[in-house]
Write a protein that binds this DNA or RNA. Structure first.
Length: 284
DNA sequence: CCAACCCCCTGAACGC
DNA sequence: TGCGTTCAGGGGGTTG
Protein backbone atom coordinates (compact mmCIF):
# COMPACT_ATOMS: atom_id res chain seq x y z
CA UNK A 1 0.00 0.00 0.00
CA UNK A 2 2.18 2.65 1.25
CA UNK A 3 4.27 5.14 -0.60
CA UNK A 4 6.56 7.73 0.91
CA UNK A 5 3.89 9.84 2.68
CA UNK A 6 2.43 6.78 4.37
CA UNK A 7 5.80 5.33 5.34
CA UNK A 8 6.87 8.72 6.66
CA UNK A 9 3.67 8.87 8.72
CA UNK A 10 4.37 5.45 10.23
CA UNK A 11 7.84 6.63 11.09
CA UNK A 12 6.61 9.86 12.69
CA UNK A 13 3.99 8.07 14.76
CA UNK A 14 6.16 5.21 15.97
CA UNK A 15 9.60 6.75 16.24
CA UNK A 16 9.17 8.78 19.44
CA UNK A 17 7.47 5.88 21.17
CA UNK A 18 10.00 3.22 20.19
CA UNK A 19 13.11 5.11 21.24
CA UNK A 20 14.89 3.40 24.09
CA UNK A 21 12.67 0.33 24.25
CA UNK A 22 14.24 -3.11 24.60
CA UNK A 23 13.20 -5.98 22.36
CA UNK A 24 12.76 -8.78 24.85
CA UNK A 25 11.42 -11.41 22.47
CA UNK A 26 10.75 -11.92 18.77
CA UNK A 27 8.19 -14.27 17.24
CA UNK A 28 8.28 -14.95 13.53
CA UNK A 29 5.21 -16.86 12.37
CA UNK A 30 6.02 -16.76 8.66
CA UNK A 31 9.69 -17.41 8.11
CA UNK A 32 9.64 -16.08 4.55
CA UNK A 33 9.06 -12.57 5.93
CA UNK A 34 12.60 -12.40 7.24
CA UNK A 35 14.52 -12.13 4.00
CA UNK A 36 17.89 -12.07 5.75
CA UNK A 37 19.10 -13.70 7.84
CA UNK A 38 16.78 -16.68 8.27
CA UNK A 39 14.02 -16.40 10.85
CA UNK A 40 15.81 -18.32 13.59
CA UNK A 41 18.96 -16.25 13.24
CA UNK A 42 16.94 -13.04 12.95
CA UNK A 43 15.21 -13.72 16.27
CA UNK A 44 18.44 -14.70 17.99
CA UNK A 45 20.26 -11.55 16.86
CA UNK A 46 17.45 -9.11 17.59
CA UNK A 47 16.46 -10.40 21.02
CA UNK A 48 17.79 -8.23 23.81
CA UNK A 49 18.64 -5.28 21.61
CA UNK A 50 17.66 -1.69 22.39
CA UNK A 51 16.04 0.57 19.80
CA UNK A 52 17.87 3.86 19.45
CA UNK A 53 15.88 5.55 16.69
CA UNK A 54 13.91 5.01 13.51
CA UNK A 55 14.56 6.31 10.02
CA UNK A 56 12.80 6.29 6.67
CA UNK A 57 14.73 5.93 3.42
CA UNK A 58 12.57 5.84 0.30
CA UNK A 59 9.82 3.41 1.23
CA UNK A 60 12.05 1.49 3.64
CA UNK A 61 11.94 1.81 7.41
CA UNK A 62 15.10 1.36 9.42
CA UNK A 63 15.10 0.59 13.14
CA UNK A 64 18.51 1.57 14.38
CA UNK A 65 19.64 -0.41 17.38
CA UNK A 66 22.01 0.84 20.03
CA UNK A 67 24.52 -1.81 19.00
CA UNK A 68 24.55 -0.19 15.54
CA UNK A 69 22.89 -3.26 14.11
CA UNK A 70 19.76 -2.29 12.22
CA UNK A 71 16.42 -3.83 11.40
CA UNK A 72 15.31 -2.85 7.92
CA UNK A 73 11.80 -3.43 6.63
CA UNK A 74 9.66 -2.74 3.61
CA UNK A 75 5.88 -2.72 3.87
CA UNK A 76 5.36 -3.35 0.15
CA UNK A 77 1.64 -3.44 -0.70
CA UNK A 78 -0.26 -4.32 2.47
CA UNK A 79 2.29 -4.37 5.25
CA UNK A 80 1.41 -2.62 8.47
CA UNK A 81 3.37 -1.88 11.62
CA UNK A 82 1.43 -1.45 14.85
CA UNK A 83 2.66 -0.53 18.31
CA UNK A 84 0.05 -1.96 20.62
CA UNK A 85 -0.58 -3.04 24.20
CA UNK A 86 0.39 -6.70 24.39
CA UNK A 87 -3.05 -7.72 25.59
CA UNK A 88 -4.89 -6.45 22.51
CA UNK A 89 -6.10 -9.16 20.11
CA UNK A 90 -3.82 -9.72 17.14
CA UNK A 91 -4.70 -8.31 13.77
CA UNK A 92 -5.31 -10.89 11.07
CA UNK A 93 -2.17 -11.79 9.10
CA UNK A 94 0.20 -10.90 11.92
CA UNK A 95 3.53 -12.44 10.97
CA UNK A 96 6.13 -10.93 13.30
CA UNK A 97 5.80 -9.79 16.90
CA UNK A 98 8.43 -7.89 18.84
CA UNK A 99 7.83 -7.89 22.61
CA UNK A 100 9.07 -4.67 24.15
CA UNK A 101 10.02 -3.50 27.60
CA UNK A 102 11.11 -0.16 28.92
CA UNK A 103 7.94 1.88 28.70
CA UNK A 104 6.81 3.49 31.96
CA UNK A 105 5.76 0.93 34.53
CA UNK A 106 2.33 2.47 34.81
CA UNK A 107 1.63 1.48 31.21
CA UNK A 108 0.90 -2.01 29.91
CA UNK A 109 3.61 -3.97 28.12
CA UNK A 110 3.88 -3.19 24.42
CA UNK A 111 4.34 -5.18 21.25
CA UNK A 112 5.40 -4.04 17.82
CA UNK A 113 3.46 -6.19 15.37
CA UNK A 114 3.85 -6.60 11.65
CA UNK A 115 0.75 -7.69 9.77
CA UNK A 116 0.61 -8.13 6.03
CA UNK A 117 -2.28 -9.73 4.18
CA UNK A 118 -0.43 -10.34 0.95
CA UNK A 119 2.87 -11.22 2.63
CA UNK A 120 4.97 -9.18 0.24
CA UNK A 121 6.61 -7.22 3.07
CA UNK A 122 10.14 -8.13 4.12
CA UNK A 123 12.49 -7.70 7.08
CA UNK A 124 16.28 -7.75 7.13
CA UNK A 125 18.78 -7.52 9.94
CA UNK A 126 22.17 -6.06 9.23
CA UNK A 127 24.96 -6.21 11.78
CA UNK A 128 27.11 -3.20 12.43
CA UNK A 129 29.36 -2.64 9.41
CA UNK A 130 27.78 -5.51 7.52
CA UNK A 131 27.65 -4.70 3.84
CA UNK A 132 24.11 -4.36 2.56
CA UNK A 133 23.87 -6.60 -0.45
CA UNK A 134 20.33 -7.62 0.33
CA UNK A 135 17.86 -4.78 0.63
CA UNK A 136 18.59 -2.59 -2.38
CA UNK A 137 18.77 0.51 -0.20
CA UNK A 138 22.25 1.15 -1.45
CA UNK A 139 20.98 1.60 -4.99
CA UNK A 140 18.17 3.97 -4.05
CA UNK A 141 18.11 7.35 -5.70
CA UNK A 142 18.01 10.68 -3.91
CA UNK A 143 15.35 11.57 -1.37
CA UNK A 144 12.58 13.75 -2.82
CA UNK A 145 13.34 16.52 -0.32
CA UNK A 146 17.05 16.51 -1.01
CA UNK A 147 18.49 19.71 -2.45
CA UNK A 148 20.03 17.46 -5.09
CA UNK A 149 16.59 16.99 -6.64
CA UNK A 150 16.95 19.63 -9.33
CA UNK A 151 15.67 19.90 -12.90
CA UNK A 152 19.25 19.23 -14.00
CA UNK A 153 19.39 16.01 -11.98
CA UNK A 154 16.17 14.71 -13.51
CA UNK A 155 17.21 15.74 -16.99
CA UNK A 156 20.62 14.11 -16.64
CA UNK A 157 19.12 10.94 -15.18
CA UNK A 158 16.08 10.52 -17.43
CA UNK A 159 16.31 13.06 -20.23
CA UNK A 160 17.56 10.61 -22.84
CA UNK A 161 15.37 7.68 -21.95
CA UNK A 162 12.59 6.53 -24.21
CA UNK A 163 10.54 5.17 -21.35
CA UNK A 164 7.64 7.26 -20.09
CA UNK A 165 8.07 10.02 -17.58
CA UNK A 166 5.76 8.18 -15.19
CA UNK A 167 7.95 5.08 -15.27
CA UNK A 168 10.93 7.31 -14.52
CA UNK A 169 9.21 8.70 -11.44
CA UNK A 170 8.45 5.15 -10.29
CA UNK A 171 12.12 4.17 -10.62
CA UNK A 172 13.34 3.99 -7.01
CA UNK A 173 16.92 4.35 -8.15
CA UNK A 174 16.25 7.82 -9.56
CA UNK A 175 14.13 9.41 -6.84
CA UNK A 176 13.24 7.15 -3.89
CA UNK A 177 9.74 6.86 -2.48
CA UNK A 178 7.33 7.69 -5.29
CA UNK A 179 4.72 5.04 -6.15
CA UNK A 180 1.74 4.79 -8.42
CA UNK A 181 -0.54 7.19 -6.57
CA UNK A 182 1.85 10.08 -6.15
CA UNK A 183 3.42 9.78 -9.58
CA UNK A 184 -0.06 10.51 -10.96
CA UNK A 185 -0.57 13.36 -8.51
CA UNK A 186 2.86 14.84 -9.25
CA UNK A 187 2.36 14.72 -13.01
CA UNK A 188 -1.06 16.30 -12.70
CA UNK A 189 0.40 19.19 -10.70
CA UNK A 190 3.24 19.48 -13.20
CA UNK A 191 0.78 19.43 -16.10
CA UNK A 192 2.53 16.59 -17.87
CA UNK A 193 0.96 13.63 -19.66
CA UNK A 194 2.12 10.49 -17.81
CA UNK A 195 2.84 8.45 -20.94
CA UNK A 196 5.08 11.07 -22.49
CA UNK A 197 8.51 9.67 -23.34
CA UNK A 198 11.03 11.15 -20.93
CA UNK A 199 13.24 12.21 -23.80
CA UNK A 200 10.50 14.50 -25.09
CA UNK A 201 10.42 16.65 -21.94
CA UNK A 202 11.94 20.09 -22.20
CA UNK A 203 13.85 22.00 -19.57
CA UNK A 204 10.70 23.75 -18.37
CA UNK A 205 8.92 20.41 -18.01
CA UNK A 206 11.67 19.04 -15.78
CA UNK A 207 11.47 22.25 -13.78
CA UNK A 208 7.80 21.66 -13.09
CA UNK A 209 8.40 18.00 -12.19
CA UNK A 210 11.27 18.90 -9.86
CA UNK A 211 9.05 21.43 -8.10
CA UNK A 212 6.00 19.17 -7.91
CA UNK A 213 7.80 16.17 -6.37
CA UNK A 214 8.64 17.66 -2.96
CA UNK A 215 5.61 19.93 -2.95
CA UNK A 216 3.09 17.11 -3.48
CA UNK A 217 4.84 14.64 -1.17
CA UNK A 218 4.99 17.25 1.58
CA UNK A 219 1.34 18.13 1.06
CA UNK A 220 0.17 14.52 1.23
CA UNK A 221 2.42 13.68 4.19
CA UNK A 222 0.95 16.58 6.14
CA UNK A 223 -2.58 15.50 5.26
CA UNK A 224 -1.76 12.06 6.72
CA UNK A 225 -0.91 13.49 10.12
CA UNK A 226 -2.46 11.35 12.84
CA UNK A 227 -2.11 10.84 16.58
CA UNK A 228 -0.60 7.57 17.69
CA UNK A 229 -3.90 6.70 19.37
CA UNK A 230 -5.90 7.20 16.17
CA UNK A 231 -3.22 5.40 14.21
CA UNK A 232 -3.57 2.34 16.41
CA UNK A 233 -7.34 2.65 16.50
CA UNK A 234 -7.50 2.58 12.71
CA UNK A 235 -5.09 -0.39 12.54
CA UNK A 236 -2.56 1.81 10.80
CA UNK A 237 -4.69 2.01 7.69
CA UNK A 238 -6.35 5.36 8.07
CA UNK A 239 -4.68 7.22 5.24
CA UNK A 240 -6.52 10.46 5.68
CA UNK A 241 -4.97 12.10 2.66
CA UNK A 242 -7.05 10.05 0.22
CA UNK A 243 -9.86 12.65 -0.03
CA UNK A 244 -7.25 15.08 -1.32
CA UNK A 245 -6.22 13.02 -4.34
CA UNK A 246 -6.83 15.12 -7.42
CA UNK A 247 -6.61 12.36 -10.02
CA UNK A 248 -5.64 8.98 -8.54
CA UNK A 249 -8.67 6.69 -8.47
CA UNK A 250 -10.85 9.36 -10.07
CA UNK A 251 -11.01 8.22 -13.67
CA UNK A 252 -14.24 9.41 -15.30
CA UNK A 253 -14.77 12.14 -12.72
CA UNK A 254 -14.34 15.84 -13.46
CA UNK A 255 -10.89 17.38 -13.38
CA UNK A 256 -10.59 19.50 -10.21
CA UNK A 257 -9.04 22.30 -12.26
CA UNK A 258 -10.84 22.44 -15.60
CA UNK A 259 -13.88 20.23 -14.98
CA UNK A 260 -13.37 18.03 -18.00
CA UNK A 261 -13.44 14.27 -17.62
CA UNK A 262 -10.35 12.57 -16.17
CA UNK A 263 -9.15 9.61 -18.21
CA UNK A 264 -7.68 6.29 -17.07
CA UNK A 265 -4.95 4.61 -19.09
CA UNK A 266 -2.27 1.99 -18.44
CA UNK A 267 1.33 3.20 -18.34
CA UNK A 268 4.13 0.75 -17.70
CA UNK A 269 1.52 -1.77 -16.63
CA UNK A 270 0.16 0.54 -13.93
CA UNK A 271 -3.24 2.18 -13.81
CA UNK A 272 -2.85 5.90 -14.45
CA UNK A 273 -5.32 8.75 -14.31
CA UNK A 274 -4.79 12.14 -15.90
CA UNK A 275 -6.61 15.13 -17.34
CA UNK A 276 -6.43 15.19 -21.13
CA UNK A 277 -6.77 18.96 -21.10
CA UNK A 278 -4.42 19.91 -18.26
CA UNK A 279 -1.83 17.27 -19.21
CA UNK A 280 -1.35 17.50 -22.95
CA UNK A 281 0.55 14.68 -24.63
CA UNK A 282 2.74 17.31 -26.34
CA UNK A 283 3.57 20.81 -25.25
CA UNK A 284 1.83 23.49 -27.25
C1' DC B 1 21.48 -1.70 -21.50
C1' DC B 2 16.26 -2.38 -22.38
C1' DA B 3 11.39 -4.20 -22.83
C1' DA B 4 8.28 -7.71 -21.95
C1' DC B 5 6.92 -10.92 -19.59
C1' DC B 6 6.82 -13.96 -15.18
C1' DC B 7 6.50 -14.45 -10.08
C1' DC B 8 5.20 -13.51 -5.06
C1' DC B 9 -0.16 -13.38 -2.13
C1' DT B 10 -5.08 -12.27 -0.49
C1' DG B 11 -9.33 -10.03 -0.90
C1' DA B 12 -12.60 -6.78 -2.92
C1' DA B 13 -15.35 -5.59 -6.78
C1' DC B 14 -17.56 -6.71 -10.81
C1' DG B 15 -19.86 -9.43 -14.67
C1' DC B 16 -22.57 -13.26 -15.86
C1' DT C 1 -26.41 -17.01 -4.72
C1' DG C 2 -22.41 -18.55 -6.75
C1' DC C 3 -18.53 -18.62 -9.64
C1' DG C 4 -15.01 -16.79 -12.53
C1' DT C 5 -12.26 -12.72 -13.79
C1' DT C 6 -9.80 -8.61 -12.90
C1' DC C 7 -7.56 -5.54 -10.22
C1' DA C 8 -4.89 -3.52 -6.19
C1' DG C 9 -0.88 1.80 -3.97
C1' DG C 10 5.13 -3.07 -3.58
C1' DG C 11 9.38 -5.15 -5.73
C1' DG C 12 12.26 -8.82 -8.01
C1' DG C 13 13.58 -12.19 -11.45
C1' DT C 14 14.22 -14.20 -16.15
C1' DT C 15 14.35 -14.05 -21.06
C1' DG C 16 15.34 -12.39 -25.61
Amino acid sequence: MPELPEVETVKRVLEPRLRGLTITNVTVKRPEITAYPNAEEFCRLVTGQIISHMERRGKFLILHLRSHDRIILHLRMTGCLLLTPADLPEEAHTHIIFSLSGSPESLPALELRFSDMRRFGRFWLLRENEADTYTGIGKLGIEPFDAALTPAYLQARFGKRRKTVKECLLDQNGVAGIGNIYSDEILFTAGIYPARPANSLKQEDWERVAAAVPERLTFFTEKNEITSEDYLQSKGRNYRNTPFFQVYGRGGQPCPVCGNKLRRIVVGGRSSVYCPDCQKSEEA
